[in-house]
Write a protein that binds this DNA or RNA. Structure first.
Length: 282
DNA sequence: GACCAGGAAGAGT
DNA sequence: ACTCTTCATGGT
């Protein structure tokens, strides 16, 4: 099986990275192997100290997916601006943002609104099972994430089994308007953060939070700072005390939090967001 | 801006 | 069994 040996200036934790909640299609087996589907590949991977062992993808693919080329030490140095974030970073050593496939990421975050993570995972697995392509891998069947046409062709009714609730027409509508996922991906990718954000928010079911997640997780726009209920609570308690707790998160509050984070944590504030989120129960 | 719908499943009591 | 919460968004 192919291996990657991590160097000293390449901090990486597979468990932190896949377990922090940024991805929905990976599972950790009892024996320490992680199994996941990325694009058209079923992959298994495990970490033994500084050695990564994997199957189902090339070394280049794994390096790119896990952002092993990113100088994480420098990123952390730049966001480590106060004792609170310092503690969060310390409790999630080796956490890296992965490079998610954009189309799957888009639909995932449309499905994520006001739902807990197990529910989101079930919805995405259901979409893949209904409309994706089956892959056999080590005696098990996995399903690729379906392209826009596969989802749209089934019609709105065909989505009912996926139990998306009110998100169903959003997933359907977005699958109809993004007919060519690669063309869509390239168009978003060459836009700067603000323009890409506006463009994403024209899609039905994509608000500020989902747009920021997609930009951060799929397009590596690290200046994005997604504000969900957890982040809002953390920011309110530890950084911006004069926010009204009982009011719903208004667009103004969202932008205040986002603006503060961008100023306070800098160009890689998205990384700060992920450390704060991952350490939320710690 | 305030309010509410849509809706399934986890978490806590 | 019951209530509250959940990686929010869109429409009125």
């Amino acid at each position: 099986m192919p291996k990657i040996t991590l160097s000293d200036h390449q901090p990486f934790s597979l468990d932190q990275t896949l377990g922090c909640g940024q991805v929905f299609r990976w599972d950790r087996a009892e024996d320490g192997w992680w199994y996941g589907i990325v694009k058209d590949k079923a992959i298994k991977i495990r970490q033994d100290g500084s050695i990564l062992v994997f199957k189902g993808a090339t070394t280049t693919f794994i390096r790119n997916y896990f952002s092993l080329d990113l100088d994480l030490k420098e990123v952390i140095k730049s966001i480590d601006q106060d004792p609170f974030i310092h503690a969060a970073i310390g409790s999630c050593t080796g956490l890296r943002l992965v490079r998610q496939p954009p189309w799957e990421c888009l639909i995932s975050y449309i499905c994520s609104t006001n739902s807990n993570i197990p529910t989101i995972r079930r919805r995405i697995a259901s979409l893949a099972e209904q409309f994706g392509k089956a892959i056999e891998f080590e005696g098990r069947t996995y399903y690729t994430f379906p392209n826009p046409t596969s989802i749209a062709c089934e019609g709105n009714e065909g989505l009912t089994l996926c139990k998306l609730g009110y998100r169903q027409p959003y997933v359907f509508g977005t699958s109809c308007s993004v007919t060519d996922e690669r063309q869509w991906e390239e168009r978003i990718r060459r836009l700067p953060y603000d323009d890409a954000r506006k463009e994403l928010m024209t899609l039905h079911g994509v608000g500020p939070k989902a747009a920021d997640c997609i930009l951060l997780f799929a397009f590596q726009k690290y200046e994005a700072f997604p504000v969900d209920v957890w982040i809002r609570r953390i920011m309110q308690r530890n950084y911006i005390r004069n926010l009204d707790l009982d009011a719903g998160l208004t667009n103004r509050d969202y932008n205040r939090i986002r603006g503060f984070a961008r100023e306070h944590f800098g160009d890689y504030c998205g990384y700060a967001q992920e450390y704060l989120y991952a350490a939320r129960n710690g």
